[in-house]
Design a protein around this nucleic acid. Structure first.
Length: 482
RNA sequence: GGUCCCAUCGUCUAGUGGCCUAGGACAUCACCCUCUCAAGGUGGAGGCACGGGUUCGAAUCCCGUUGGGACUGCCA
């Protein structure tokens, strides 16, 4: 007995969506649970109007980033066109299909007040032949019902009467999603169809097609298990939309989310590991994941929680790892890929050793790797990037602060240049002006780093060196006087 | 409108008839730690949508109501 064969079948019509990523992940879990499991990537590119090759690259690279490597594929649905055409003609030959040249308006007008949804079956018995306007419709059965047994939800039944004679191919013979998907799943011997809840209404039709194909092709293939995952929603509880919501996986990568954190978070949407733990690696997920444990209700994609998780993962990184993983944001010129956000410093200004020294202090302060540059830019730039509001408040409009800075130039000129000595020196400096350390460090921090927040000040000063620190304080005093 | 799905703190969830005085996590609030900001520590507030049943016993089972969602394409 071979293992499960699952597929992730996105259509390349936009950025790689977080909801798609979650579907892919759950498929991947199921495949990896069995040593013989197979995870297939199939690009569903039959909608030539909207597909773009660049989106295919996006899907592949995002999946690669997340560590979900397909065992087979990427296949192109379009490469399977001959099989689709063959399925179409055998279904037609077996009487499952008929031609229909009704336009949407004609159908609506004819139905009038009739509230039954879908096509009214007008062309069912007209025995039309192929033409430039005749689409292929499936002769849906009437009476009785069809039961979808769903591994997540249990049995869901649909009355045959609500399944209309749906279109399976355009007049050109171009096969549409419902059929193409089934033909490919049969060819790939898919055992589990794990996809978003939005496909649940398609499922009875696809089962009908599957059975029709069993008959028409003379080859009976076991119907796969189906599992429909709850949708991901936004704060308004609407399905995440490519237009309104930040759903592009690529964007999260660019912002400095770690793939392992992202995968962990995705796994938590609609599922949870055993016990009171949430931070789990993918091996644990693979081991524990069961489709029957997946939640039935929609989940809100909470970026705040994602960010928190990411911070946890960042802090858990060994220091060298952290430094290395910062490179797309800190030294993109040596990195295998670069963030769209370039650092404010140049290749020549960046000092790897200096960054390595400040890194441990930065590591525990950031939730996103893209937050790193703003935290350390003062170490590499010739002059700090000033936060004007902070400068005005802490230095320009504060004469005591300026007095403190003036004294600092003198004291810092002769102190031992170490973080602890600078710390003690600043305490004394503050005391001489009735300022506690909290107050005393602020103008120095602002003068030297340009900001009021950042890594611990005295370690920063030590790294910067006496000459730079003194000249920055002088520059700040000059700037305040201007 | 029709079909289908769903319903535990603001959010993600644990919970499969007694272990529930409903647990954890994010967010939030307070305090502690502290050179800023974080991180960390301690504590607090906060939920079974509602109404009926079934049962000795219901967050858990059944029915109804209400509310939300998906779908309703010659898209996928």
């Amino acid at each position: 007995m071979s293992g499960p064969r699952v597929r992730f079948a996105p259509s390349p019509t936009g950025f790689f969506h977080v909801g798609s990523a979650r579907s892919a992940l759950f498929n991947w879990f199921v495949a990896r649970q069995d040593p013989e499991g197979v995870f297939i990537l199939r690009i569903e590119d039959t909608d030539t109007e909207r597909n773009r090759e660049e989106w295919v690259d996006g899907i592949v690279s995002a999946m690669n980033w997340l560590g979900m490597h397909p065992d087979e594929g990427p296949f192109r649905q379009s490469d399977n066109a001959p099989a689709h055409a063959h399925a179409l003609s055998s279904l037609m030959a077996a009487g499952y299909l008929y031609f229909c040249d009704c336009t949407g308006e004609v159908v609506t007008a004819r139905k009038g007040a009739d509230k039954t949804p879908g096509y009214d079956g007008f062309c069912r018995d007209r025995a039309l032949g192929p033409s430039a306007t005749a689409a292929y419709r499936f002769r849906a059965p009437s009476g009785g019902e069809i039961v979808v047994s769903d591994d997540v939800r249990g049995d869901v039944s649909f009355s045959h009467d609500v399944i209309d004679d749906f279109v399976v191919a355009k007049p050109s013979g171009a096969v549409l999603f419902a059929l193409a998907n089934v033909v490919d799943d049969r060819a790939d011997r898919i055992t589990h169809v794990i996809r978003g809840e939005e496909h649940l209404p398609n499922t009875p039709r696809q089962i009908l097609l599957w059975e029709a194909l069993d008959e028409a092709s003379g080859e009976k293939i076991a119907i796969p298990h189906y599992a429909h995952l709850p949708v991901l929603v936004n704060e308004q509880r609407k399905k995440l939309s490519k237009r309104r919501d930040p759903v592009a996986v690529e964007m999260y990568r660019d912002q400095g989310y770690l793939p392992e954190a992202f995968v962990n978070y995705l796994a938590l949407l609609g599922w949870s590991p055993r016990g009171d733990v949430e931070i789990v690696d993918s091996d644990t997920c693979i081991q524990q994941f069961r489709l029957s444990d997946v939640s039935h209700s929609p989940a809100f994609f909470d970026v705040k929680k994602l960010a928190h998780l990411n911070g946890e993962y960042i802090r858990a990184l060994p220091l060298e790892q952290f430094v290395q993983r910062c490179s797309p944001w800190t030294s993109p010129w040596t990195s295998p890929w670069r963030s769209e956000q370039a650092p404010p410093w140049s290749d020549a200004q960046f000092d790897e050793d200096r960054f390595a020294k400040i890194a441990p202090l930065v590591q525990e302060r950031v939730a996103l790797l893209s937050d790193v540059p703003a935290m350390v830019d003062f170490l590499f730039l010739d002059a700090p990037l000033f936060d004007d509001a902070a400068f005005d408040k802490t230095i320009r409009r504060d004469s005591v602060a300026q007095e403190l800075l003036t004294k600092a130039i003198e004291k810092f000129g002769e102190v031992d240049w170490s973080a602890t000595a600078l710390h003690d020196c600043t305490i004394l400096l503050g005391e001489s002006l009735q300022l506690n350390l909290r107050k005393a460090q602020a103008p120095i921090r602002c003068a030297v780093t340009g900001r009021l927040v950042g890594p611990p000040l005295f370690e920063s000063l030590e790294l910067l060196g006496r000459d730079v620190v003194l000249s920055r304080i002088e520059a700040a005093l000059t700037k305040a006087a201007a």
